[in-house]
Design a protein around this nucleic acid. Structure first.
Length: 267
DNA sequence: CGTGGGACCTGAACGC
DNA sequence: TGCGTTCAGGTCCCAC
């Protein structure tokens, strides 16, 4: 589920409760959530470590410990929040970590795609992620959105090109920039690349202000829904009238992902 | 190099 | 009510 704005919202929400806390015992009901590490190994590396800071990189949540890092990816249905109980009444909690403040960091994930991994450093993230879109200016997108014949929608989802854009905000940015998602990347003009870059930044920034999109699973760490879904222009609006021209929003499949756009506004 | 399919998993929505 | 199908904010891996 979560893309850059949702992950950013989760990180911001967790910082006040997590920074400075000392880790206690971890717990899992499904060891695969640790991405191949055994619970006992994980416990040995994490227990008594103090959480120094948190930050987001792409769609990854990075929790800095005194030694090493916890890296969490929410994938489609992951949630990360503070709880008073190890598992509480949430049947989808597969990992939790006791903290010295008496609370628990709980990772809930209905589909079990998400992972909580311990790593010594974050180099592996840099190796597979492109730049952070919110740190770029419009001109930076000109060289970035080049060098491929793939459809621009598919290209935007490639985390190695740009980190953090997912299916919702790719569709929304392409609509805002009035660019058809099927256009080959190398067919875009430089002004179009800039326009799309601006649109990506605008769409992601707005979604952070709305604290993410709650369609089904995503929740803020405080348990409440985000508001971003109320502002979608095309995502999930198949056959509804385009908010600009009134013609029906099209849905097709690109790169095996549902893709929403206005065939009249986006050329 | 790019694409297409499948795998990983489960829940919700919808059609009959 | 029950069953089958389809779809879902992501990523990785393999064959062609």
């Amino acid at each position: 589920m979560p893309e850059l704005p949702e992950v950013e919202t989760v990180v911001r929400g967790l910082i006040p409760d997590l920074v400075g806390a000392r880790c206690g015992k971890p717990w899992v009901d499904w060891e695969k959530v640790l991405d191949g590490m055994s619970l006992s190994d994980f416990a040995g590396l994490v227990e008594n470590q103090t959480i120094q800071r948190l930050h987001r990189r792409g769609k990854y949540i990075c929790i800095h410990l005194s030694k090493g890092f916890l890296v969490v990816h929410l994938r489609m249905t992951g949630r990360l929040y503070l709880s008073d109980q190890r598992q509480g009444d949430d049947p989808w909690v597969h990992f939790s970590l006791a903290l010295d403040n008496g609370r628990f960091l709980a990772f809930s994930d209905a589909r079990k795609f998400g992972r909580v991994q311990w790593v010594t450093d974050l180099d592996f993230l840099e190796a597979k992620l492109g730049p952070e879109p919110l740190e770029l200016g419009p001109a930076d997108f000109v060289p970035l959105l080049q060098g491929s014949s793939r459809a621009i929608k598919v290209f935007l989802l490639d985390q190695k090109r740009i980190a953090g854009v997912g299916n919702i905000y790719a569709d929304e940015a392409l609509f805002l920039a009035r660019i058809n998602p099927t256009r080959p990347v190398d067919s875009l003009s430089d002004p179009e690349r800039q326009r799309l870059g601006k649109a990506v930044v605008k769409v992601l920034s707005a979604a952070i202000d709305y604290e993410g999109a709650s369609i089904q699973w995503y929740r803020k760490p405080d348990g409440n829904q985000g508001e971003s879904q109320k502002h979608f222009q095309v995502y999930g609006r198949t056959n509804n009238p385009c908010l600009v021209c009134g013609s029906p929003v099209t849905r097709n499949v690109l790169g095996q992902r549902g893709t929403h756009f206005c065939g009249k506004c986006q050329c």
